[in-house]
Computed example of a mutant assay.
Amino acid sequence: MNPHYRPSFATEELEFHGNENNPEGKALYFPVHRRRILIDTLSRPESYFEYLPEENSINGTEVIYIGTIKEIPCYCFELEEEFCEPDMQYFDLHELYGMVDEEMLGIASRAVQMADFYRTHRYCGLCGGNTEYVPVETGMQCQNCSHIAYPRISPAVIVLIEKDEHLLMARSKNFPEGVYGLVAGFVEAGETIEHAAHREIREEVGVSVKDLTYFASQPWPFPSSLMIGFTANFAEGDISIDPEEIEDAAWFHVEDIPKLPQKKSISRALIDHFLDEHAAKE
């Protein structure tokens, strides 16, 4: 683990298979509807997840145990409809960033992904039978053929490419106006994360790199990815973008960096690391 980086949307204190029996009966609940969490907006941030809707609002779904933090068990459940009482409001994970502390944001991230997993795996992919959640397996098991499906995590690489005092940055057509980030892409079946990094760089911006070095990783629950960050040095080649993936790419001097992604992303952490290193050399 990188000691200088605390990834957003990650939980570091939650015991995934901890003790569910709290001596005082305390618990935290994460009601979810299509990847958004229901919160009592009149409560304080530290009390956001203490509210459990009435029983009739969760009929037809299953309350899933997702772990224990400081002896308090945590649960999530997918609401069948967009249930909302007065003073209750739905928030997505992007909106929760900055509203709650990083650890609670990480637990909320896990809750959203587990509720979404439950919602999308109620029927067996092999025989079509009904499934049920099996806590010890963290999976949905078919009641007919016993096939088990597990939460899908999609690994993706993201690479900071530097050349002297310059940083290779790219922007997707989906980025906010003026924002540049780093080269990134999903790992394909049958390849290592290192091979994926070299392939994505070659495909998206046309250059090759050397000295590929692991930096850190970050859960990215949009919807369910694991970002694996690297740094690398430019080796050779001219920038040639893939217009299907990249709108623009260019080298930027350390003193002329464009508008950056928000701090909640590992992309920003990598860029800040690059800037801090060069600032220290001055």
Rank of each mutant, 00 (worst) to 15 (best):
M1Y: 08
S8F: 15
F9W: 05
A10P: 05
T11K: 01
E15R: 08
E15V: 10
H17A: 09
N19Q: 08
N22K: 05
P23L: 06
G25Q: 09
L28Y: 14
L28S: 12
F30Q: 02
F30L: 03
F30G: 03
P31S: 10
R35E: 13
I37C: 01
F49C: 13
P53Q: 12
S57Y: 10
G60S: 01
G60R: 09
I66H: 05
I66A: 01
P73E: 11
E81Y: 14
E81Q: 10
E82P: 04
F83P: 02
P86R: 08
D87H: 15
Q89K: 14
G98N: 01
E103R: 06
E103K: 11
A108E: 10
S109C: 06
V112E: 07
H121M: 10
C127S: 04
G129Y: 01
N130S: 12
V134E: 05
V134F: 12
V134G: 03
P135M: 13
V136Q: 06
V136S: 08
E137G: 02
M140I: 05
N144M: 01
Y150I: 01
P155M: 01
A156Y: 08
V159Y: 00
I161W: 08
E162T: 11
K163P: 03
D164N: 14
L167D: 00
L168M: 11
K173D: 08
V179K: 07
A189G: 13
R199Q: 09
R202W: 12
G206I: 00
G206C: 04
V207A: 06
F215M: 02
A216E: 14
A216D: 15
W220M: 08
W220T: 07
F230N: 09
E244G: 15
E245L: 12
I246P: 07
A250C: 01
V254Y: 15
E255Y: 02
K259D: 02
Q262T: 13
K264D: 07
A269L: 07
I271W: 00
E277C: 06
A279V: 09
